[in-house]
Amino acid sequence: MIPLQALYGSAGVVLFVLGLWSFLVHAPLLRKLIAINIMGSGVFHLLIAIAERGTEPPDPVPHALVLTGIVVAVSATALALVFSRRLEDAGGPPEDEC
C-alpha cells in the first residue's frame, strides 16, 4: 500500500513540474504568475505532505516554512502585477517573452 504522504508528495512534484512547464511555454505575464504560484504550491504541498506523520502529531516545522513561503509568494505576485500595470501604462502590453 502506498503511504499517504507518498501519494500527496508525488502530487506536489507533479504540480511543480506542471507549473514549470506552463511558465516556460505561456507568454502572458498573468499566466506566468499563475504558473509560478502553482509551482510554489507544489513545493508547499510536498512540505505539508512530509509533515504528516500518521499516528504522531504532524511536524510543525514544515508548516511554519510553508506559512512563510505563502506570504513571500503573495508579496512577489503583488509586486509583479504592479510592474506589469506600469508597463501597460508606459505603452502597450508587457513584452511577450521571457
Binding site: I48, P58, H63, L67
Partner: peptide
C-alpha cells in the same frame, strides 16, 4: 486541512 495542517 485533511493533512492536519489547519494553520497553513
Amino acid at each position: 486541512a485533511r493533512l492536519r495542517a489547519p494553520d497553513v
